[in-house]
């Protein structure tokens, strides 16, 4: 007998957990999925359902007692001019923040996906992620200082002799104010800054999967860089853009801190939810307000799907 053929055909007889799981793959799948399914199914969806249910309750305006008979009265309250104002303001801000984020994020993501290699790529990830490591509140307050009347931005505008431009901009009704830090523009700038990483990373991931040869092929077939962007890069990056916009849009829809610190004191949906369920004790109206972003996101995703945003997935 040769040395090669020596030894038992089986290394070790007997059971063990791994062997059992190998023989019964369904059991393994169950073990892997049970904790997340419990979390998602009971804790997350359960509380969401509880919230939805609350929105169909109503509040007795005199006693402040919650009436648990199902009604659409609370939703009717959403349609009051003051509440509609809040909804439109929030939607407009979310849309503006999303569009601006795409505009700022795309070139950065494109550079990272197509050109950055090795050390530069690591630097890119660090640069994008670093702001996420520090407290959100610290960043927002830092921006308040940057945007304040005597802040660095105003100082810089004065320094290069463009102070008049900033003043002219701030005098525009609807977007201006006494200083950037108390204007809707200030709120907008801070929102864009804070949510930007959530837009950059999905776009970068989408562009990363676009082979360079597709861009070359487009040019080879006669397309100018602008045409290549429109017909090749943009459609292929769209799933990433939509994924990113889900983040920026929904995070802006629900945020209640930034509008309190930077900007006018005009209310946004998140702030309304916060105030109604807290100080005002009107949980049904807070719940109804909270349903608005869910519905809006549902419609948004439906439109995105209809427009073929996920076809390239």
């Amino acid at each position: 007998m040769t040395a090669v053929a020596e030894g038992a055909p089986v290394r070790e007889a007997g059971g063990g957990l791994s062997d059992t799981l190998w023989r019964r793959p369904r059991l393994l799948l169950l073990l892997l999925l049970a904790p997340p399914l419990l979390w998602l199914g009971i804790i997350y969806l359960g509380s969401l359902f509880a919230l939805l249910a609350q929105s169909f309750f109503s509040i007795d305006e005199f006693s402040g007692v919650i009436d648990r008979t199902p009604t659409l009265k609370t939703y009717g309250e959403l349609l009051r001019p003051a509440n509609l104002d809040i909804i439109w303001r929030t939607l407009a801000m979310s849309a503006a923040v999303t569009v601006a984020s795409v505009g700022v994020a795309f070139p950065i993501a494109y550079y990272a996906a197509r050109y950055a290699r090795g050390r530069w790529k690591a630097l890119f990830y660090l640069g994008v992620m670093l702001p996420l490591w520090s407290s959100y509140l610290v960043k927002v307050y830092a921006w308040k200082l940057i945007l304040a009347k005597e802040g660095i931005l105003g100082w810089a505008f004065e320094g290069v002799g463009l102070g008049w431009l900033l003043d002219a901009f701030l005098s525009v009704p609807g977007i201006g104010g006494n200083s950037l830090s108390v204007s809707p523009t200030g709120t907008f700038i801070v929102f864009v800054y804070v949510w930007l990483p959530y837009m950059i990373l999905p776009i970068q991931a989408a562009l990363e999967r676009v082979p360079g040869s597709l861009v070359e092929a487009s040019g080879d077939l006669g397309a100018s860089p602008a045409q290549t962007f429109r017909h090749v890069l943009w459609p292929l990056a769209l799933p990433g853009v939509v994924a990113g916009s889900i983040f920026t849009f929904s995070l802006t829809l629900g945020d209640y801190i930034i509008p309190q610190i930077v900007g006018t004191s005009a209310r946004f949906i998140g702030l309304a939810v916060y105030q109604y369920q807290g100080t005002a004790g009107n949980v049904p109206l807070a719940a109804a307000f909270a349903v608005v972003p869910i519905v809006v996101m549902g419609i948004y995703l439906w439109i995105a799907k209809r427009m073929g945003a996920f076809d390239a997935l």
Partner: peptide, 28 residues
């Protein structure tokens, strides 16, 4: 490249994944 009267068949074919075959061929 887009101003040269040459066309390339790429090693990985570089077909546009989001377009159907007809639109791929009609791209130029």
């Amino acid at each position: 490249p887009y101003k040269r009267a040459v066309n390339t068949v790429f090693q990985d074919y570089a077909l546009f994944p989001h377009l159907n075959v007809l639109d791929n061929v009609a791209y130029g």
